[in-house]
Amino acid sequence: MNLKTPLTLEKIKNIKAGTQIFLSGTIFSMRDKAHKKMVEENFFPLNLKDQTIFYMGPSPTRPGHKSGSCGPTTSARMDKWTPTFVKKTGIICIIGKGERSQQVKEAMKGKILYLIAFGGLGALYAKCVKKSEVVLFKELGCEAVYKLEVENMPLIVAQDIKGENIL
């Protein structure tokens, strides 16, 4: 099914784990260092309420391209910070790769739609990006926070709002 951000609980509450999604709209990329900085320094300058975040650190953008290669990175590395991150920001959707810890699965229940992107398909995902800009932590290079406009990103629901999980 097609889905467009920004998402609302109403829009996603009946989407079942295992559903294939084509996602369009604005999403924010961030990974280890951005999570660590925000959670451990209690520094949340962006309004991420009801936003979608993507665990991803792109390769540099070649001239003439809109983005570098940009597939998902391993979600489990963010597990340590995710429960606090979700509570502090009010995000509604996470895109990543692979399994989450039991604690994160619990923390996502009722609040977060967890989508997985296909690992190792960075070129294909780069073609879904229509616009990309760094909005926070520029000094972190590929680990900065990017605001991305995407079109028809192929994804799968790994855990739905009810907590059903296919992994």
């Binding site: 390769s59 391209h65 570098g68 990175t73 690992g119 398909l121 960075g122 070129a123 780069a126 073609k127």
Partner: peptide, 16 residues
């Protein structure tokens, strides 16, 4: 498809 795009349009196969 990813392999085709990477080769033809010079996007790395994977960002890592």
């Amino acid at each position: 498809d990813n392999a085709k795009i990477a080769k033809k349009e010079l996007y790395p196969l994977c960002q890592d």
